[in-house]
Simulated assay, not measured.
Amino acid sequence: MFILTDGKNYIMENPVKQGVYISTSSPVMAKEFSFKQARTVLNNRSKKMKWIGSYYMVDKETGQVSETSAFYKGNGGVYIGENDIKFDDSIITKIYNETKTMAGLAGWSMAQLKTYEEQLNIGLSKYDSAVSDIEHALQKYKEDNDGKNPQAHKVAKIGYLLGEIREKHENIKQCMDYIQVFKNAITYNYTIEKIKLELMKAKHAEYQGRTEYYQIALEILGCGGKQNVV
C-alpha cells in the first residue's frame, strides 16, 4: 500500500465527504492507496486537484519512494511485487450465495400477503374455538359427574391436546406478525436490511404470566425458577 506526500504534507480522505481528498500534516491521517489508486489520484488534472502536483507515492511498509512515474499511463507492473494486493476470493462465494438466496425468494405481492393473512385468521379462529370447546367439555364432565374432576389419565390426555392446539395457535400468531412486516415493507419501501431487522423484532419473546395462576401452574409442572408476572 502507498501514501501520497510532498515530503511535508499528506493526502487524506475528507471525513465528511467520501471520495474527496484534502491535505493534512499528520502522517497518521494519511490515506492508504493501492498502487493503481495512488497513481489515479496523482494523474487527476481537475482544477480542484491542482494542489497535488508536487505529491508522490511512498511505500507504506518500506518508506521508499515509488520508482514508477506517477505519469505513466499503462498498467505494467500494477500488481507485481510491492505493488501486488491480496484479493480475498471468498467474497465471490459470498456474493454468489447471497444472489442465489435473493433469487430464490418468493417475492410475495400485497395481494398474496392479504390472502395468507385471511387464511391465517381462519386458522386462528378455529384454534381459539378449539380451546373454548375443550374448556366447555371439561365443564360438562363435571356437571354430568356431580362436580367430580376427570381421572388423572384423562386430564393428561386433555393437557396434551391443549398443548398441541396452543402450539398451532402460537405459530399462526407468529406468522401473522411476520406477514405484517412484509406488508409494511411493501408499503414503506423497506431495504433488505430493514426487513431483516423488523423480522427479528417481530419474533415472539418468552411468555410472561399475567396472574398468579401462571406461577402456580409452573410449580405444579415443575418448570423451575420463579417467573415474572405482568
Rank of each mutant, 00 (worst) to 15 (best):
G77Q: 05
N14A: 04
L162R: 07
N184E: 08
G222K: 07
R166P: 02
K168E: 09
Q139I: 15
I95V: 10
I186S: 07
A130D: 09
S54Q: 15
G159W: 01
F71L: 13
D133C: 03
I52F: 06
Y56W: 13
L221I: 06
V28K: 09
Y213R: 08
W51H: 06
K142T: 11
V155D: 06
R210Q: 15
I179G: 01
T68K: 08
S66K: 10
K183L: 11
Q37E: 15
A156P: 02
R39Q: 09
K36Q: 10
K154I: 14
K50R: 14
R45P: 00
I91D: 02
Q208E: 13
M200L: 14
D177T: 15
Y79A: 06
A111M: 08
L197Y: 13
Y160C: 04
I95A: 13
M176D: 00
G225C: 03
N184V: 02
H136Y: 03
N228C: 00
Y79G: 04
K194W: 01
D59H: 11
V131E: 01
T68F: 04
K60L: 13
E143K: 14
G123R: 01
K194R: 15
E167L: 08
K203P: 06
G104A: 09
Y141F: 10
K100I: 15
A103V: 14
G225D: 12
S109D: 08
A70T: 12
K173R: 13
N228W: 00
D128W: 09
N184K: 14
Y141R: 00
K126C: 01
L199M: 14
A130E: 01
N14W: 06
N97F: 11
T187P: 02
N75W: 12
E118N: 07
Q112T: 15
S125K: 15
G209T: 07
D133Q: 10
K50C: 00
A217T: 12
G147A: 08
K173Q: 14
D146Y: 11
Y190R: 04
G53H: 08
I52C: 03
L138K: 03
N9W: 06
K100Q: 08
C175N: 07
K17L: 14
M49W: 05
I92H: 10
K183A: 01
N189I: 00
S132P: 02
V181D: 05
E164A: 01
A130K: 07
M102I: 15
S66A: 14
Q37K: 11
L113Y: 04
Q18N: 14
K94P: 00
L120C: 14
G76H: 08
K114G: 03
N228S: 12
T191A: 04
E32M: 14
L120D: 08
Y178P: 05
C223Y: 11
V131H: 05
D146H: 11
V131I: 02
T101M: 15
A106M: 07
Q174I: 02
E167Y: 12
R210L: 12
A70M: 10
C223A: 13
V41N: 01
M49K: 01
Q139V: 12
G222C: 05
T211Q: 10
T115G: 00
F182W: 04
D146M: 10
G163T: 02
I22C: 09
N44F: 05
S132C: 07
K201C: 10
G53S: 12
R210M: 07
G81V: 06
N184R: 06
G222Y: 08
I80C: 00
G74K: 00
Y10C: 04
